[in-house]
């Protein structure tokens, strides 16, 4: 039982929990405690030292709106954001309760007319910003990947196409999201001139910029993965007389899957980094806009709020990367080749 759990943890990139499982099953507990001291103790020590140094240095750095906030201030800012969210949720609940009462009255008086339902229009709170950001980055990532993977497969299969496209790839790859943004804004605004756009313009602009900046690692790694298929495996396809479609789906894609996932993982990292800048400028109501709004209103809480956002952005980026590692390990036939 525990052996199976450990195997699953190892295969899904959660090897760090193995000593804990083994301790619970009392498998060489002394050894496990030592191991846990290393895998958990050292990171905790690192974080503690960081927080202490931060707390010491921050008050000494003066800005026009006060000193840099220390860990305590940031923590209370995070708590106030949470409290705000709770209060907003309460208001929303009260609003719908009120509306339900009005609806009952309305139906009693005008049974033939439908009730004019009004959704709650409160201001977005911190979790809403996070969800918007996640939704935007995911959309951009999917757009990017759905272009990059087929294109990468084509580049990997045909050396001529790869040579033809390589200068373009190398030219567009290092372009900053800030350079793409005005172009994306103008093009998308021109395309969505109608009065009732199906999606928010700012959302689409941010997602497209994320896609444009994040598709390159996937494209390059997919091409590399496809180009480095073992020749024997392609000979098998030839001898078995597989159709081109079957060759791609049964041999080319499975054998390049580890590198495709490496590319996707890098792309998601780039996409998440680019997203914040894109949201700031496009005014998409995600974490980027949150940071920008805080910067603009310049209250005594500003810096603490921005630091909460910084830490949130970092933690989410970390989580996204772990998810990609897990997916990579689950979908690849052999262990991960990618650097951690």
């Amino acid at each position: 039982m525990s052996a199976k759990v450990i195997q699953v943890l190892d295969k899904t990139g959660f090897g760090m929990f193995v000593p804990l499982v083994r301790l619970i099953t009392w498998d060489e507990p002394a050894q496990q405690l030592k191991e846990m001291g290393k895998t958990y103790g050292l990171p905790i020590l690192g974080i503690t030292v960081f927080v202490l140094v931060w707390g010491l240095i921050a008050p000494r750095i003066q800005t026009s709106i006060g000193a840099l906030p220390g860990p305590g201030e940031v923590w209370s800012a995070a708590k106030s954001l949470y409290a705000e969210h709770q209060a907003e949720k309460l208001r929303e609940k009260e609003y719908y309760q009120q509306q339900a009462l009005r609806k009952a009255k309305w139906e009693a008086r005008f049974p033939e007319k439908p009730f004019p339902f009004q959704p709650y229009a409160g201001k977005p709170t911190y979790p809403n910003y996070i969800l918007t950001s996640l939704y935007t980055v995911f959309t951009g990532f999917v757009i990017g990947a759905s272009l990059a993977i087929p294109l990468g497969i084509i580049c990997g299969m045909s050396k001529a196409i790869y040579i033809a496209l390589n200068p373009l790839i190398q030219t567009f790859k290092p372009v900053s999201p800030l350079a793409w943004l005005p172009i994306a804004t103008l093009v998308i605004s021109a395309m969505m001139s109608g009065p009732n756009p199906p999606v928010e313009k700012s959302f689409l602009i941010s997602a497209v910029v994320v896609a444009l900046c994040s598709l390159w690692p996937t494209l390059i790694n997919t091409a590399l993965g496809v180009a480095s298929i073992e020749k024997d495996h392609l000979n098998v396809a030839r001898v078995l007389r597989l159709s081109p479609w079957k060759t791609v789906t049964k041999i080319v894609i499975p054998s390049s899957l580890p590198l495709i996932f490496t590319g996707l993982r890098l792309s998601l990292g780039v996409g998440w980094m680019v997203l914040i800048a894109a949201e700031m400028l496009a005014q998409n109501p995600g974490l980027g806009k949150f940071v920008w709004d805080m910067f603009q209103n310049g209250s005594s809480q500003t810096l603490a709020m921005i630091l909460v956002a910084v830490i949130t952005i970092g933690l989410i980026g970390f989580a996204l990367d772990r998810i990609m590692v897990t997916l990579q390990k689950l979908f690849s036939y052999s262990g991960s080749v990618a650097a951690q």
């Binding site: 495996h233 000979n235 030839r238 001898v239 597989l242 036939y333």
Partner: peptide, 26 residues
């Protein structure tokens, strides 16, 4: 190559992401 000439390769050339059954079934 053609299906009338079966080849057994020196280094087996099995597809590592497929089971025994799937390799033969392919």
């Amino acid at each position: 190559p053609g299906p009338e000439r079966g080849v057994v390769f020196q280094n087996y050339s099995l597809l590592p992401w497929m089971s025994v059954y799937e390799n033969v079934r392919l």
